[in-house]
Design a protein around this nucleic acid. Sequence first.
DNA 1: GAATTACTTAGGCGTATGGCTAAGCATGAT
DNA 2: ATCATGCTTAGCCATACGCCTAAGTAATTC
Lengths: 128, 128
Amino acid sequence: MAKHDPHLDDLFTALGDPTRRAVLARLARGPASVSELAAPHAMALPSFMGHLQKLETAGLIETRKQGRTRICRLAPDALAPALDWLSKQRALWSGRLDRFDNYVTRLNDARSQKEPPHGHPDRPRPAD
Amino acid sequence: MAKHDPHLDDLFTALGDPTRRAVLARLARGPASVSELAAPHAMALPSFMGHLQKLETAGLIETRKQGRTRICRLAPDALAPALDWLSKQRALWSGRLDRFDNYVTRLNDARSQKEPPHGHPDRPRPAD
DNA sequence: GAATTACTTAGGCGTATGGCTAAGCATGAT
DNA sequence: ATCATGCTTAGCCATACGCCTAAGTAATTC
């Protein structure tokens, strides 16, 4: 079940920045050098390198030095964990949403009308 | 294509925190009150509320007040944009990766063995 | 109506993030 | 050898983040 995966932290955080997503999108069209990647981004190179650093730390890109230029490319399956978490989560959501929505709506309605002394009944514990 | 979508920033950033992901996971089993959600998280309530706030800002959860308790539940299709971006991206990656990987590997190999005086040949400029 | 409960608001604190400039290497070209 | 290029390191700054305590407000309970 993955208690809390620190890798996912890095992954999602890395994706949470437009510059970094743009770099990934650009990189999807093929490897590129640092300065090439930095060109469209209107920021000083060291700042930009910071972004690359995070992408690499998150395992989203791989870089290697070739002469004095550093070539960056995408890491093959780096998106898999994120995609995996998201799709699992969505599967749960869609499965449960309507059921519980109905349940709670009904519950609230009952409470605001009747004020049962019991407080809240045991939550349904959806089969686990 | 989405030049840079600020919504995605919020979405991914919200997902980049273990507490917030845990809340979502928990919430996938059904709606819950703030204090119920906060219970397993060993932090002061205001701190925890900050996380809920971000989840709501990101559009991942919806909350409404019922008496003095606030009920939180998942927002139906909130994950879709993130999932969408990721899967599109992955589609691009897998399409290009091997092609360019081969190209670059071959290129580097040639250079480190022969050191051609030409410098780097024109990169392939993938169609665009 | 007074106490309890469940949030909420206000404000503070330390660290991380995202940006900058200015030097500092290496490598490649002349 | 010299110079230009391409990245790297070092250091600074402002803001945002994640956490806290303390005090406030609104709804239930007694």
